[in-house]
Design a protein around this nucleic acid. Sequence first.
DNA 1: TTACCTGCAAACTGTTTGCCGCTGT
DNA 2: ACAGCGGCAAACAGTTTGCAGGTAA
Lengths: 139, 139
Amino acid sequence: MDLGSDLRAKGKRLTVQRRLVLEAVQRARHHVTADEVAKRVRGEAGQIDPSTVYRNLEALEELGYVTHTHLGSRVTRWHRADMHQHAHLVCRSCGAEDEVPVSVFTGLARRLRTSHGFRADLAHSAVEGICRRCAVVQS
Amino acid sequence: MDLGSDLRAKGKRLTVQRRLVLEAVQRARHHVTADEVAKRVRGEAGQIDPSTVYRNLEALEELGYVTHTHLGSRVTRWHRADMHQHAHLVCRSCGAEDEVPVSVFTGLARRLRTSHGFRADLAHSAVEGICRRCAVVQS
DNA sequence: TTACCTGCAAACTGTTTGCCGCTGT
DNA sequence: ACAGCGGCAAACAGTTTGCAGGTAA
């Protein structure tokens, strides 16, 4: 199944903007904000409205092409869904982001599931803390 | 040391609003938003401006009386700092919040520290997922 | 042809900032 | 007296919404 068919199967359409938004997310090495997606699309095509970006990210998420994450506090970050799952470490001090394989979290996930019946999605939200470099500086 | 002295020691002052904001957070059983703090203060005193609430929460955090957390995506939630530490589980489906003792996370914290040099503050951000009740309904 | 989609402008939420008169110390 | 503080209004970022004309199928 390609993007066009997947969209049509849900009564949606394949537009230029939609394709460009998906490509922008797929080409990004890491997580991108809606605003960054807009900039990337504008870099190679004409203009694109922020609202169009948001609407398309939502549509593509519904189809399972992209997912979003909340790193830090404010902004939503998007990334392709067909990557190996990973969790995020965000440094409260310098803002640095690091990725760790979800395998590091499987023990915790299992524990939360058995003791609380909670299916944790540990790739979704970041773990805040102090990164190695900042810890050295501070102490 | 009481609030007044702590404040003065930092060149700050003890005002009615500041005391009311702190009391509102302290009396709250769980985490409250800045807006909820404002409502609580208004309930027992006259008006208070949102900006005053934000500025006071920040001041009180600096003094170590309160801390904040990011549950879910958007809003900042505040709570008293002198509680037992706990982490948060937030259900993506129904929004329910649950608290778990940080002890559940110590294994993970140790692992992140030794393998990545990362000092995780697992009480700071919530773990998203699906709670027991919603998991049953969905499947 | 007819939904769906886009761009535009306006609204919205949560939060921050500048200013000026007021108040704790 | 005077630095810090409060209220007010305005600005802010990120995101959502309503609408009218455009376009995929």
